[in-house]
């Protein structure tokens, strides 16, 4: 442990909110987190996307200084959270479901945490409660709160610190559809106010909606990292096609450059392609006399994404064959 980059003197301006280098955490033979590299820049809403057990929570715990990395390092604005809580200045968040003292009211819990924060946090309690729409129930014991209310109280508790960086572990998981939507709107709003956000999720739709960058983790390893826009392009979207002449359309699809994975499911043509390729395909279909009745993008599932990233360009080669031969192998690997 040397001085220098570890100390606060490193300066908040040049150091990124989150810089994770070679981070691993092993539990016996289990590599919960395996050599993760991650940089979150100021203004990012960064999605840390992966299925259950991928190591998202474990990574966030290390970022918050709650557990000691086996190897590697975390720097928040250049400071090491393992060295001192001082590194958490301007940082707030939670891992797994946020927890509170069940026998105290929501407001009393926030008062306790504000006292532990100092720095004017107590003056932010009412506003934080208001932001997460908990003002009316703030006098009730947390023991009687629903999961969604606790989740919102967790956000309120984080806001007391007036954070520049929020670390949120699956903030919308377990909420009902309305609660999920509210949570996404809230996170977007906080991001618009200038807070950098790192949020983990197992739902692609959530990350797609609120994040600008994403890292996809599987079994502790990052298998993809990039901007959401690139991700969509790289992953390709699956489309469903209906035309006036499906027979001819199928032939056109097979022949068209940039269109892959062409197959027929329940009498409908399905294929994968990026937006440019789809635009060109529609032109080709018209020229071939197969007029488009419907061209519907299908939601890309997380599973599809893992499939495409773990198989690499194998997907392109598999365009003429059914995927069934490779799919089970991927699933058993999980």
């Amino acid at each position: 442990m040397t001085a220098g980059p570890v100390g606060s003197a490193a300066g908040d301006t040049e150091d990124p909110p989150v810089a994770v280098r070679g981070l691993s955490k092993h539990y016996g033979a289990i590599k919960a987190v395996d050599d993760v590299e991650l940089t979150v820049n100021t203004g990012d809403v960064y999605g840390y996307l992966g299925p259950n057990g991928a190591g998202k929570t474990t990574s966030l715990r290390m970022m918050l200084g709650l557990i000691r990395p086996t190897t590697g390092s975390v720097r928040l604005f250049g400071r090491d959270p393992m060295q001192s809580v001082h590194a958490l200045q301007g940082v707030a968040g939670f891992v797994e479901a946020p927890t509170f003292y069940p026998y105290l009211s929501g407001r009393r819990n926030l008062e306790l945490l504000a006292a532990f924060d100092g720095d004017g946090a107590a003056g932010r309690i009412e506003r934080a409660l208001d932001t997460v729409e908990l003002s009316e129930r703030a006098g009730d014991r947390v023991g009687g709160y629903s999961h969604g209310m606790r989740q919102r109280l967790g956000i309120a508790a984080a806001l007391l610190r007036d954070p520049k960086l929020l670390l949120l572990d699956e903030p919308a998981t377990g909420l009902d559809p309305g609660g999920m939507r509210d949570m996404r709107v809230l996170i977007r709003r906080l991001a618009d106010e200038g807070i950098t956000v790192l949020l983990s999720s197992h739902m692609l739709a959530e990350v797609e909606e609120v994040c600008n960058r994403v890292a996809i983790v599987r079994s502790g390893k990052i298998v993809y990292e990039g901007a959401i826009a690139e991700l969509k392009r790289d992953a390709g979207t699956t489309y469903r096609l209906e035309t006036t002449d499906d027979q001819r359309a199928l032939a056109v699809c097979h022949a068209q450059a940039g269109i892959s994975d062409v197959r027929t499911e329940r009498d409908r043509i399905h294929f994968t392609g990026d937006q440019q390729a789809v635009a060109e395909l529609s032109q080709a279909l018209i020229e071939a006399g197969a007029l488009i009745r419907a061209l519907t993008p299908q939601t890309v599932t997380l599973e599809d994404l893992f499939f495409s990233f773990t198989e690499g360009d194998g997907r392109q080669q598999a365009a003429h064959e059914p995927d069934e031969s490779t799919r089970p192998a991927v699933e058993s690997a999980r």
């Binding site: 918050l64 958490l88 707030a92 797994e96 945490l113 532990f116 924060d117 100092g118 720095d119």
Partner: peptide, 14 residues
């Protein structure tokens, strides 16, 4: 038991 250690140890007190 309450899982609150993580809540209080991520504030400003060591």
């Amino acid at each position: 038991h309450n899982g609150t250690l993580k809540t209080i140890l991520t504030r400003s007190l060591d």
